[in-house]
Amino acid sequence: MPKLIKNGEVVNDERWQAVDTEADNAAPGVIATLSQWQALDDKAGSAVQLEPGDGVETLLPHLADIELIAISFPVFTDGRGFSYARELRQRGYTGELRAVGGFIRDQLHYLSRVGFNAFQMNDDRELEEAVASLGDFSEHYQAAVDQPLPLFRRRA
């Protein structure tokens, strides 16, 4: 059972199993790869994982149906997932948006700003301590998903 940070707390995910890239079809309760997900007849309540390079286009017509979108970070230095997340939220996705993979604690704050609300790190040894990094900054210049108004529209 994967351990993750969700909505600011460390939890065990009892709902979704990690993707199985070998399978032809995504079994119930397993996060689908993009191609497995495309093959689903019924997308209601589905879960899908995007890899860098997948882009978000394919998902856009179904955002209201999807329960979980996982965005994979095979290496923490590949920042494409930051733009995917922002784009999905901007297009109105309100379900769970989960970062998955090799990202690190020190990226949690930026990840949460672009719209992720769940974080499943390969290195989950010190998740309790890592939660603190969500709050590295209490103020920001730019608009983002967590604060839709830039500072210049809020300066007192």
Partner: peptide
């Protein structure tokens, strides 16, 4: 400068 400082989306270009 202000816009680009800690821009959450563009820190891992």
């Amino acid at each position: 400068r202000q816009w680009s400082t800690f821009h959450p989306e563009f820190a891992f270009l």
